[in-house]
Design a binder for these strands. Structure first.
Lengths: 140, 140
DNA sequence: CTAGACCGTTGATCTAGGTCTAGAGTCAAG
DNA sequence: CTTGACTCTAGACCTAGATCAACGGTCTAG
């Protein structure tokens, strides 16, 4: 149960997680990482917990959470009882947002695909369905 | 064949297209709209062509084109022969980018959906699959 | 003729998520 | 003990696409 591990410099942490040093300091300013202990020189000193937390942040970001949402997730994950329920809710909200975005993009894709299909790729601009669609009144 | 129509103020154009005055001036600075003629007072004076061009821009934006790409589309649409081919190419590129984005989002959605499903919504944080997935090493 | 709406320019500000610079101090290897 | 790599802070800068503020000139209805 040793959570107080090695004393890593910010550069070592950055390298292990694969993130820029500036990004770590930025996350600290933004409250996504706790203020680390300092060596006598003022250098930040990190343990393994920070590595895990940075990876958490990166994965959440990959799932499309904003830094604001991630800050909230981190706070919730520390709540030993009510946290889980709230975390699930946030994940469901994120899921719904992603599904809505997919639907929007599919609509856009279908419209564009139809235009591309119907365009011969040559001829006068005023006969190009793509340009016509952009220029004329919307149909739908 | 009358393209030289009414003399609209920037405010009238903005209202008809449903865009902010500042946005019109911004598009002009960015080269998406030609510099309009001016009245003696210095006021910009627009014709119907500008209305059409602004709507073109708005629709292209809705299709996910960036302003850079739209500037290019506008230039291409003026090329009476080679324009159409290039426009179709750009549309195909945009289509491919949208499809790739949809695929990415679907992957994210599937991962997140699985996590949400497997989370009971209560209990200890360390048993919550969502938090575990964010904290632990990636599986895939 | 005047009030109020509209328009002009330049330049700053915003969001999100960082990235970079300058100038100074620290650490570790040889 | 020096050299080069590393770290510190404060603050400026970046993308994209606008949006806003300040300050002053113009237009139009009454």
């Amino acid at each position: 149960m040793n959570t107080q591990t090695a004393s890593l410099t910010i550069g070592a942490v950055a390298k292990r997680v694969g993130v820029a040093i500036d990004t770590i300091r930025y996350y600290e300013r933004e409250g996504l990482l706790p203020e680390p202990v300092r060596r006598a020189s003022g250098y930040r000193s990190y343990g393994e917990g920070t590595i895990a937390q940075l990876r958490f942040i990166r994965r959440a970001k990959d799932l499309g959470f904003t830094l604001d949402e991630i800050r909230e997730l981190l706070a919730l994950s520390a709540d030993r009882q009510r946290g889980v329920k709230a975390v699930k809710q946030r994940a469901q909200q994120r899921l719904a947002a992603i599904e809505q975005r997919i639907t929007e993009l599919q609509r856009v894709r279908d419209g564009l695909a139809q235009l591309v299909e119907s365009c011969p790729g040559h001829g006068k601009p005023e006969e190009c369905p793509i340009l016509r669609a952009l220029t004329d009144e919307a149909v739908s």
